[in-house]
């Protein structure tokens, strides 16, 4: 390892600082004591659904459609999760079902 312990601590501290900036900034810019601008209130209402969509896509960031298994096991497993959830609407069941199917697919089939 090329870095000294002090340099390592500074590097990790920078990562902590960066992470905390992204988490605290909205609360610093729009403190709860002052009225939040209407536009920001609107964003606070509509953003969550969009962000949850972004998070779903984020999980597929390392999937390559053009090579390997072409994202087929991921698509099948997501379909299983969605189907189970629309059918029974039991969070743990949907998650366990999809994950087991995914593990079987990547370990045995693809």
């Amino acid at each position: 390892m090329t870095m000294s312990v002090a340099q390592q601590i500074i590097t990790v501290a920078m990562v902590v600082l960066g992470t905390m900036l992204t988490r605290f900034l909205p609360f610093i810019l729009f403190p709860s004591g002052k009225p939040t601008p209407k536009y920001i209130q609107y964003l606070g209402k509509v953003l969550p659904s969009a962000v949850l969509g972004l998070l779903v896509i984020y999980c597929f960031k390392d999937v390559n459609l053009l090579s390997g298994s072409h994202g087929v096991p991921e698509l099948i497993a997501v379909a299983v999760v969605a189907a189970l959830h629309f059918w029974k609407r039991q969070m743990l069941l949907s998650m366990a079902g999809g994950t087991i199917v995914y593990m079987l697919l990547v370990q045995l089939v693809f």
Partner: peptide, 17 residues
């Protein structure tokens, strides 16, 4: 291998909810 899919499944379920 593949157990990490549990996080994807969580986000898909929450998105559907």
């Amino acid at each position: 291998e593949g157990l990490e899919f549990v996080m994807t499944a969580l986000f898909v379920v929450i998105f559907i909810e």
